[in-house]
Design a protein around this nucleic acid. Structure first.
Length: 528
RNA sequence: GCGCCCAUAGCUCAACGGAUAGAGCGUAUCCCUCCGAAGGAUAAAAUCGAGGUUCAAUUCCUCGUGGGCGCACCA
């Protein structure tokens, strides 16, 4: 149990309240306390007195039966209750970190098997920045959930058949002049390049745009995989092909299940799902009047496969262009009896050139590719940049500016702290063992601050796993390494009087920093 | 036209309805005889506008302004 959790437990025990209050790390300008709670406001409401009074009474009663984790409690003028954590419990926590090592902060609080689907970009061209954002986010989210106890599968659903593949094939034929071009077609340079490289194949299949499209899609997918796995450190446990979903007759099976729900009907020669019963703004077609499955039905087949493979929890990370899709796929998840289905929409990345926003279109070929970004600024910089921001935030992005500023990226600030810690440990030689440590000497202002930060790592993990806001970890890391840099300036370690306990603190810092990097999907640096 | 998302410091972004709204970059001034200065300390600097709910609003509601996205028998 973390220190914060101990305080929470005590509050619940004393007041009988389960919700309606929180324990937080207060703003340093307001107080130098380590934790604060607003519980007095809740108490005041139910007991009809001022928060200040309620807080004072609570504090008195707390003092009569204190807990080890807290050695001082105070009340602010406006009614917040502040807690100062005891050095002893902080010292104990540092010991815990060293003992647990890379397991520190992990738990079994999240149960069950969950499939996290992300990127899932159509293989009709290179990855966009938005795809990359989803990739980084999905990776970090998966890592956090796994660390919190879930059995996680990372999936990329490949839309390698259907209409857009046909369109891709036609676009290629058009690029070589075999058929007339159209506005619908993919216009990017990459289409022409691919067509040029595969002229002979295209010519042989000039009557079969689908074959051309599929071949191109396979090639593009290889390119995508290369960027993802090799260049970006994004790993998938599974690439599920839409073709295979179709081949296994899963859309048909899904349709039968949907029919059983009574939400399927026919109109105008097509077959519809009554998604309006699931707060969609209109019903959706499953089978066209030509009796062809729509993308939606095939995806329902895909969801069915996931369910059959033993997942009753699914998280789907989508870009903002799929907003309109959310209700209907949630309807399917509901009918297929997923216990839990979440859709996370990562908001748009607005591309700027100076003051001007650039219209992005894969079809028109006017976009910055994810690979460009990774090549230009480096994968760690890109990752940190995107993961410092909530999924629901729009990002203004200027590639030129990003290039210019990449060396100033905060990721280096964080990495440098870890490198500093490792250098000290290397110089010290002997590794620090948990049991033999006498940590009671730790407690200078800088040390205390660092200890508090480190001890809150499990709380941050738990919160991120709960609300999927993984950027908390990035923000946490920035704060924690700041405390470390400060400690480094203030306290010489090697050759100092309290060398051993300080080395323990440095060891604990390295563990927590490295772990945070790992959760974010960033390979912790050895050198800079 | 309808729906959703966003608007916070010069820039890019934080802030379960809670205290004097934070961080990085940029700007100004200090700090290397010392484990790497890719560092530390200090300072100036912000909630789009108008109402409302609340003990308390950047956060919730209404209207407006400005951006983005979605509204297919495409995917």
């Amino acid at each position: 149990m973390t220190i914060k959790e101990e305080i929470e437990r005590k509050l619940k025990e004393m007041t009988g309240l389960e919700t309606g209050f929180s324990v937080e790390v207060p703003d340093k300008k307001a107080t130098d306390a380590d934790y604060a709670t607003n519980i007095a406001f809740a108490l005041a409401r139910s007991e009809k007195r001022s928060p200040r009074e309620a807080a004072n009474e609570f504090a008195d009663s707390f003092r009569r039966s204190p807990i080890d984790a807290v050695d001082r409690i105070g009340v602010s003028e406006n009614g917040f209750i502040n807690f100062w954590v005891s050095k002893k419990s902080l010292q104990r926590e540092i010991g815990e970190i060293i003992k647990a090592g890379m397991k520190y902060g992990s738990s079994r609080s999240v149960k069950g098997r969950v499939q996290v689907e992300f990127i899932s970009a159509n293989p009709t061209g290179p990855l966009t920045l938005a795809n990359g954002r989803g990739g980084f986010y999905g990776t970090a989210l998966s890592n956090v959930l796994a660390f919190a106890g879930a059995d996680v599968e990372r999936e990329y659903y490949v839309n390698d058949s259907g209409n857009q593949v046909l369109t891709l094939g036609r676009s290629i034929l058009a690029a070589l002049g075999f058929i007339e071009s159209s506005e619908e077609f993919y216009q990017g340079e990459y289409v022409k390049e691919w067509a040029g490289r595969n002229r002979a194949f295209v010519e042989r299949h000039r009557e079969d745009p689908e074959a051309v499209g599929e071949r191109a899609a396979d090639d593009f997918l290889e390119g995508i995989k290369h960027v993802i796995e090799k260049k970006s450190g994004i790993h998938f446990d599974r690439y599920t092909s839409e073709r295979s979903v179709r081949k296994k007759k899963l859309p048909e099976k899904a349709l039968r299940l949907l029919r059983k729900s009574g939400k399927v009907y026919e109109r105008d020669g097509a077959v519809w799902l009554k998604t309006t019963d699931f707060s969609d703004d209109k019903d959706r077609v499953l089978l066209t009047k030509d009796n062809l499955p729509t993308y939606f039905l095939v995806d329902a087949g895909h969801y069915l496969e996931t369910k059959k493979r033993g997942f009753d929890w699914k998280i789907n990370v989508l870009g903002p262009d799929h907003y309109g899709y959310v209700r209907r796929i949630q309807a399917v998840a509901d009918i297929l009896k997923f216990k839990r289905s979440d859709v996370v929409i990562t908001q748009a990345i607005l591309i700027k050139k100076g003051e001007e926003f650039v219209k992005m279109s894969k079809r028109k070929g006017t976009f910055v590719t994810f690979e460009d970004l990774v090549d230009e600024v480096g994968v760690d910089v890109a990752k940190f940049f995107f993961l410092a921001v909530g999924a629901n935030s729009h990002i203004d992005f200027d590639l030129d500016l990003a290039k210019e500023r990449s060396s100033k990226n905060p990721v280096f600030y964080a990495e440098y702290a870890l490198v500093r810690a490792k250098k000290i440990l290397a110089k010290a030689g002997v590794p620090v063992k948990a049991k033999t440590q006498d940590l009671s000497a730790l407690g200078s202002v800088a040390e205390r601050e660092l200890m508090v930060r480190l001890a809150s790592f499990p709380d941050v993990v738990a919160e991120s796993a709960r609300d999927y806001e993984v950027h908390r970890l990035t923000r946490y890391l920035m704060g924690a390494v700041k405390s470390f840099h400060n400690f480094y300036e203030e306290e010489k370690v090697i050759g100092s009087e309290r060398e051993r306990p300080k080395l323990a603190l440095v060891t604990a810092s390295a563990i927590v920093f490295e772990n945070t990097f790992r959760l974010l999907g960033i390979v912790p640096p050895e050198e800079m």
